[in-house]
């Protein structure tokens, strides 16, 4: 995953594909969030051992 936030043009187009039409000012704020989140998300892929099943919608009920 890229560590840099996508461009305003990319974000505008991707939002439009989902029927949402934000202002450039809004998308600049989004870039701020993504610039922090995307590098952190990249690490998720490396911290999960092979064969780990998802937690699912609700975590299970069992004892420690």
């Amino acid at each position: 995953m890229a560590d840099e936030a996508p461009s305003i043009e990319y974000l505008r187009a991707a939002a439009a594909l989902q029927g949402v039409h934000p202002s450039d000012e809004d998308l600049e704020a989004v870039q701020g969030f993504l610039s922090v989140l995307l590098p952190a998300f990249s690490e998720l892929e490396t911290m999960t051992p092979a064969g780990t099943v998802p937690a699912g919608m609700f975590v299970p009920i069992d004892q420690p």
Partner: peptide
């Protein structure tokens, strides 16, 4: 403005990140 920015950010979270997050949640 702040909630709008958070909600818009959610549009750009890749589905692979969501899936990875659910697996990491198990860890």
């Amino acid at each position: 403005p702040d909630v709008r920015a958070r909600l818009l950010t959610g549009l750009f979270i890749p589905s692979t990140v969501y899936a990875a997050g659910q697996r990491a949640r198990r860890v």
